[in-house]
Amino acid sequence: MKIIVAIKQVPERDARIRIDSSGKWIALDDIEFRMNESDAYALEEALLLREAHGGEVIVLSAGPERVGQTIREALAKGADRGIHILSDSLASYDALGVARLMAAAIRDEAADLILTGLQSDDLGLGQTGVILAELLAIPHSSLILKIEKTDTGIRVLRELEDGWFQQIEMPTPALLTIQSGNTRLRYATLMGIKKAKTKELRSVEAASLGVDAVPSVTLDSVALPSRQKSTQMLTGSPAEAAAKLVEKLQQEVRVL
C-alpha cells in the first residue's frame, strides 16, 4: 500500500499569539511550530497500515524552510520519504491553491491512499483535503476514526454528530481526513531521528508547479478573541448551591 500523508506545520498550541502589523495574520517571530495535531494522527494511521500490510508512507508538506523540520519529525517517526513544496509565501494561497500545489506535486506518485488531518489547528478550514481529492478525481471521506483494508478497497469508520458513527466501504485510491484521538501516537526516537537523516526529502519549488497564486478567497483580517470572565458565586447551603448549579447547567449552559 502506497500512502501519502499531508501534514501541516502550525504554531504551537499555547503560543503567545500577537497580530502582526498587517492585521491579516499573527506575528510569527518568537513562535514555535509543531505538527498539526490531527495530521499526527493521520501519520500514525498510515504507519499502522504499513506495519500491517507493507508498502510505503510518504509525507507531504508545504511551506518555508522551517517546515522541513516537521517533515524530518515525520520521517523520524517512521515515514519512508518526504516531499516538501517550498514556498515562503504560502499564506498568499487559499485552500484551493494549496490543494492545487499538492495535487501537482503528487499526481505522479499514484498513491493508494492519501491521508490528511481533519483540519488545521491554525485556520481550521477543513477544506484542503477534500479539495485535493476532487482535484485528483478520487473518492474521499472525512472525519475518519478507523481504517481497515479489505479485498476490494478499504472499510472506514466515520464519526457523525451526536454519538453516531458510519461504516463506509470504499475503493482505492481514496482520500481520507483523519479525526484526532482514536489511536496512541508513537514518540519520536533517537534511532528514528538518525535513520531520518538518510531518508529522501525531495524539495519542489512551489513556483515550478504551475499553479496560479491568485486566491479566490482572501483573508481580510484576524482578531484575538475577546476574553470575558464572569464568575458567579452560588450561595446558600451545599444542597441549595448544588440545586442552583444543576439548574444553571440545564438552563444556561445546556450540558445536562
Partner: peptide, 13 residues
Amino acid sequence: AVNTGEWDDEHGG
C-alpha cells in the same frame, strides 16, 4: 528500549 521505540507504554508515550 526507548531509543529504538521498542518500549510501548501508554503513560510513557
